[in-house]
Each structure stands twice: as structure tokens, then as C-alpha cells.
Nucleic acid binder design. Structure first.
Lengths: 186, 186
DNA sequence: TGGCGATGTCAACACTTGTTGGCCTACACT
DNA sequence: AGTGTAGGCCAACAAGTGTTGACATCGCCA
């Protein structure tokens, strides 16, 4: 029994979080107003304050995120790049949380910190399992390419990047990640 | 004689633009207030309105930007990737305009449009001069890697990406751009 | 010197924001 | 049935925003 007593407010709380993720993802931190979020959730703005304290804490609760990177232990070493690329592209769709985090990170210090931590604690170990040396650098480089995709495809919506099919994108990006994982600069 | 009569207000106008670029680059579009920009420029907020009309137009004036990509005509084909990487990394420092554009693009539609146009009209031709096929796709992919660097290095400030020396970064990124320029996905 | 446009300041406007406290209502438990 | 408490709404606050118009002052030209 993980859930003890399902209170009536839990549903409202969840509705607020859903609306918050949507607004933060769409508008960024400052333009997403508590009033708009409350309206989307069909309740009064003061309820948001009661349940989450203030806007910062609401964001912190809404932007809880897990990359859910696959276990690379059993993979062929030369395949990891492509597998990682596929996973990341898939993960981006169907979850607005990362978009909220990405948009908010541009102006909100807490979002920056959280994003740093996500990449350090979740991507770092994966890299370490594959490459023994220069783990930080490799993880950082992978982050540049992965976040570059997210930024151009979902925020900037550059037409050619949007137009690419999932598989086509993976074919191009996979080798890049592979080189950042196992290659050398020269 | 391109300049006719240097009015006294030109200096003020320029001071406003400098302050505006700084604030937009640092804080993003919404958090950069006209009052703060005016204070930085040492004048009254109403002057900003008089000279630029409104905030949108001020941003448009402040975010005039040119990538100043080098002429690739004379370069060895297999060198273009690295040269491009070096140029882009250098260009990022010492000019706050692109950072302003990048930060603002997250919440401001006009900034998005301008960024799209910059990459289409300035990066597109360079790619076309090197690769005859899939010009749009190649330009888009280059944009993902280039903007990913900008985002992680200057906005997110991921420690390992910040720590990398210019040359080290170029060594890693160069081959990626080269493959996006002249390679094939498989 | 007188005047007039350019340059600049001041104070206020209408509006939106996050946030707060008081009040109402319905349900669960005794 | 009565009552306490959780869930919810309403109205308002203080602060900050872009923006505007009236007023002061500087500097040039007739």
C-alpha cells in the first residue's frame, strides 16, 4: 500500500501541476502566471498558493524530471551513441516537463541549477560506464548536442529541424554522440 | 559622406542600445525592464520611448545581428568544419547581441523569427557553397550543434562545457560540423 | 537678443503580477 | 444532529510594469 488516504485535494493538486507544466513549457517562467495556471486548472489562484506556497515552489514541484536513460551495461559499445540519440528524441515528445525546464532555465536560476544536476547525476554515470577518461568533458559535449536539438526543434522550431523524421534525426545525431562518447578530439 | 549631421541625441541613442543589449542578454526579454535600461544609460525611461517607440521596437533595434561567417570559397573542403567551429566560438564572445537574441527567443516571438531568418539567410548560403544536396537539413543540423554550445556554455553554464578551452572545443566540434556539411547519415 | 526646436525630467496613468486574509460551504466523524 | 475541519472563493493589497503628457532647459540660428 503505497498510498494511504487519498484526500480529495490530491486531484486538485495534480490538476494544478498539469496546468503548471503546460504553461511553464509554453510561456517560460515569467510569462506563465499563477492566475492563468489556476484558470486552466479550474480553481482559484489562492489555492495554488495554499498548496505550493509560492511560484518558485510551484515550479520546483512541476519541474521534477527524470531523463530515464536506458541501461547501457548490456549494449554493444559502438551502438550506444545511436541508442542514446533515439531515446533522447523519444523522451522529448510526450513530456512537457523538460520543455518547461528548458524554457525556464533561461531566466530562472533554480531551473538552471536543476538542469545542471540532472545532467550531472543522470548523464554522467552513463558516460562513465562507457568511457573511462574525460567523463565530464564527454558528458558536457553530449549535453550540447542534445540540448541543441531540443532548442532548435521545440523552442526555435527551425523549419528543417522540425521537418526531419525521428529516424533521420537519429541517424545524423547518433554518430555524433558516439564520437563524443568513445572518440578522441583529433 | 555617409554621416550628415551628428546630432547630440545619437550618443544617447547609442548608450540606450548598449544598455539594452546588456540587459536583454543578461535577463531575457521580460525581466529586462525599460526602467533598468534607462538607468544604465543614465537617462529617463521616457527617453527610451521617445527614441524607440516601445519595448518591442527597442529590442528589434538592439538585436540587429550579423553572424559574419567567413567566406568558404577559398577553403579546403575538408577544413570548413573546423574553421566554422572556430569562427562561431570566437564570435560568441565579445558580442552580447547574440546572447540577447538567444535569451529573448525563448519567450518572444519576434526574436524567434529573427533568429530563424539569421540562420536561413546567413548559414544557408555557406552550406550551399560546400554541399550541393540536402542544404536545409545540413544547415539545420549545424544550427543544433552551434546553438547547443551557446546554450550550455553561456546560458546554462554547464561546468565541463565552460571549462573547455576554445581550441579544445573546436577540436571536438569541428568534425561534427564537417560531417553535417559533407557527410551522409549512415 | 529673442525665439524655437531638440533634449531631457517628473509625475502620473492604467494594468498586471504575486500574495494575503477573511469568509463561505460541504463533508466526515462523534 | 451537531460540529470541526478541509476545500474553495472573493476581494483586496503592495509592488512593479509599459506608457503618456505636461513641463523645464539647453543650444543653435535669425
Amino acid at each position: 500500500m503505497t498510498t494511504a488516504k487519498p484526500r480529495r485535494s490530491d486531484a486538485t493538486k495534480e490538476a494544478i501541476l498539469v496546468a503548471a507544466r503546460e504553461r511553464f513549457a509554453e510561456d517560460g517562467y515569467e510569462r506563465a502566471t499563477i492566475r492563468a495556471i489556476a484558470a486552466d486548472a479550474g480553481i482559484d489562484p489562492s489555492m495554488v498558493m495554499r498548496y505550493f506556497g509560492n511560484k518558485e515552489k510551484l515550479f520546483a514541484a512541476a519541474a521534477e524530471f527524470d531523463l530515464r536513460l536506458p541501461d547501457v551495461a548490456g549494449m554493444a559499445r559502438e551502438e550506444v551513441g545511436r541508442r542514446l540519440a533515439g531515446h533522447v528524441v523519444d523522451r522529448w515528445d510526450g513530456d512537457e516537463t523538460l520543455m518547461a525546464l528548458l524554457r525556464a532555465a533561461v531566466t530562472n536560476a533554480a531551473a538552471v541549477e536543476r538542469m545542471r544536476k540532472i545532467f550531472a547525476t543522470q548523464l554522467g554515470p552513463v558516460v562513465a560506464a562507457i568511457a573511462p577518461d574525460r567523463v565530464g568533458t564527454r558528458a558536457g559535449l553530449i549535453a550540447t548536442q542534445v540540448l541543441g536539438i531540443a532548442f532548435t526543434r521545440y523552442v526555435l522550431r527551425l523549419p528543417p529541424v522540425v521537418a526531419m523524421e525521428r529516424d533521420e534525426l537519429v541517424e545524423w545525431i547518433g554518430p555524433t554522440l558516439q564520437r563524443y562518447l568513445t572518440g578522441t578530439p583529433d
